[in-house]
Computed example of a mutant assay.
Amino acid sequence: MKREIIIGEHRIGPEHPPFIIAEMSGNHNQSLERALAIVEAAANAGVHALKLQTYTADTMTLDIAEGEFFIEDSNNLWQGNSLYKLYQEAYTPWEWHKSIFDRCRELGLVAFSTPFDESAVDFLEELDVPAYKIASFENTDIPLIRKVASTGKPVIISTGMASVAELDETVQAAREAGCHNLVLLKCTSTYPSTPENTNLRTIPHLQQLFDCQVGLSDHTMGTGVAVASVALGATVIEKHFTLSRADGGVDSAFSMEPREMCTLVKETEQAWQALGIVSYGPTETEQPSLKHRRSLYIIKDMKAGDVLSKENVRAIRPGAGLLPKHMDILLGKKITRDVKRGTPLTWELV
């Protein structure tokens, strides 16, 4: 597996803390001022990147409000809208992109986007984005993937709903078109998702299948799933982000608030730190604790020639005496000199 990918000034890989992406999506609620406030909140929360989505309603679908163009599923967060109306509400005006990206750079954030058609890729190339993201619903759009991959920039692809065969076709198309830095994101395309439907064990399997880095696009609530993903090898974590869920918006219901995002950044880094290496025996920092292990001590005053027994020898803390495993050998032996209660038992005393 390629060990390291560079996006902006960030190195991404198993040897580095997870790369955290805050997805703004439509949480700006059609206010550039709010969008810029989201950027600042993301930077303050400690994320590494902020991501937009680049489309218009017309590049996504047709202005039809019936049949398959209308969302009637009662379990769908956006039920009662036409696709066209939903995308009109959620899209980020293209004329905002430069202002948002500039503010990201000022605050030290990597700024990039998800294009949904080839015209969006051309537009984002004009803004010189450092990477691209492909959404789950577009991971079978092979022409779009080839277009993005041909830029030669790192490509992050969400795997939601895709079969192994579809992913194989996607990854092959990306690599053949020029993508040498690929990250797949395990993703469940429900909004919100549940931990039970997340299947994080897929992460190491994806790594093995496609010999690339794998992360998580997480639509669950809270931080637990993201933290667990790091333990399974996730190097990138993407979460939707808003100033406040109470403010509403198309994605607000499953988006993190600033305090939650700050917690996620810290806890995923701690999870990564905790992975460490395969290690046995005392670490350097554990060395001082060795003296507090159990060991064999004389627990009664004894005279030279007295016999060691369970009445005068016990395994207790601290650890200055012989190891408890020697108890059976020592019982019945005579001591060589007078000793006081609290003396550690050593070979020299028997």
Rank of each mutant, 00 (worst) to 15 (best):
G13N: 03
I21V: 06
I21C: 00
S25D: 09
L32N: 03
A35L: 04
A43H: 10
H48L: 05
A49S: 08
Q53T: 06
T54V: 08
A57N: 12
T61D: 09
F69Y: 15
L77H: 13
Y84P: 11
E89T: 04
A90E: 14
E95T: 11
D102W: 05
C104D: 07
V110D: 02
F116N: 10
D117E: 15
E126D: 15
L127G: 05
D128N: 14
I134H: 13
F137Y: 14
I145G: 08
A149E: 11
A149L: 12
S150K: 06
I157P: 09
S163H: 11
D168Q: 09
E169W: 05
V171M: 05
R175H: 08
G178S: 03
L182A: 03
K186L: 09
N197M: 04
R201K: 05
H205P: 00
L206H: 01
Q207E: 14
L209N: 02
L216H: 01
L216V: 01
T223P: 00
G224Y: 08
A231D: 09
A234M: 00
A234W: 02
A246F: 03
V250N: 12
S252G: 01
A253I: 04
C262S: 13
T263S: 07
L264F: 06
Q273L: 08
L275G: 06
G281F: 13
L290F: 13
K291T: 14
S295Q: 02
S295P: 07
L296M: 07
L296D: 01
Y297N: 06
K300D: 13
A304Q: 14
V307S: 07
L308Q: 06
K310G: 07
G332I: 12
T336L: 12
T336Y: 03
R337G: 07
V339T: 10
P344S: 05
P344V: 08
W347C: 08
